[in-house]
């Protein structure tokens, strides 16, 4: 997995609440057996008309946000399905960090598995970052995972929380399966104990 350390980039504002996984990547694009190539269909139904032409006033179609690497979004981002195609599409587009007041649990976890940093902040601070993002391409934000700080284009610093283990994995680009396999002994012990206690499982 790609490491996430420090990001200095354009933030796109998407204030709509409850942006669900069907909006992020409609199901017709789930019929792939690959992880890559979904970025072009990110937010497909909001981004293109039925003929496949770009809808001009959709945020990521505006010239100033086409290279966005950060998304500042409304409450409850990523609700709905467990489809990892949602973070795959976001990462494939080039977005590495999403900021909101809350995320759906499964989506939140899926982000970390794909080198995306989801940041939860209080409403007031998300509002402030939303305003900063609305300034466009000349106003770049900095997200520093090591220091756990966001710096706005005006130099205002906003600290954020992140789970220590998830931070460690993201900073070092670690593969969860490899880490777990180092604990194979504990899993084996559990299994042999359970074959006595709950043999019907």
């Amino acid at each position: 997995m790609e490491k996430f350390e420090k990001l200095h980039g354009i933030a796109a504002p998407m204030p709509l609440v409850n942006i669900d996984t069907d909006m992020i990547i409609p199901k017709i694009f789930l019929k792939t057996i690959k992880r890559s190539g979904l970025g072009v269909n990110l937010f497909d139904e909001m981004r293109y008309d039925r003929e496949g032409n770009e809808i001009e006033d959709f945020v990521l179609n505006k010239p100033q946000y086409r290279e966005a690497e950060i998304l500042v979004a409304g409450d409850n981002f990523g609700c709905g399905s467990s489809r990892e195609h949602a973070p795959w599409a976001i990462a494939d587009f080039g977005i590495k960090c999403v900021i909101s007041t809350s995320f759906a649990d499964i989506f939140f976890n899926n982000c970390f598995k794909n080198g995306i940093l989801p940041i939860v902040l209080p409403q007031e601070q998300v509002d402030l970052l939303m305003k900063d993002a609305e300034k466009g391409a000349n106003a770049r934000m900095t997200v520093d995972l090591e220091a756990q700080e966001i710096t706005t284009s005006d130099g205002e610093v906003i600290p954020f929380n992140v789970d220590a283990f998830k931070k460690h994995c993201l900073l070092n680009g670690l593969d969860d399966i490899g880490l777990t396999m180092e604990k194979a002994g504990a899993i084996e012990n559990y299994e042999s104990k359970m074959s006595q206690e709950r043999p019907w499982v």
Binding site: S82, E84, P87, I106, K113, D176, I177, L179, M181, I187
Partner: peptide, 18 residues
């Protein structure tokens, strides 16, 4: 509960979830 595909792979490989 539901899990993403990375976690599907994790469970297939280790029968556990972090």
């Amino acid at each position: 509960h539901g899990i993403g595909t990375s976690e599907v792979e994790h469970v297939l490989a280790t029968q556990t979830l972090i």
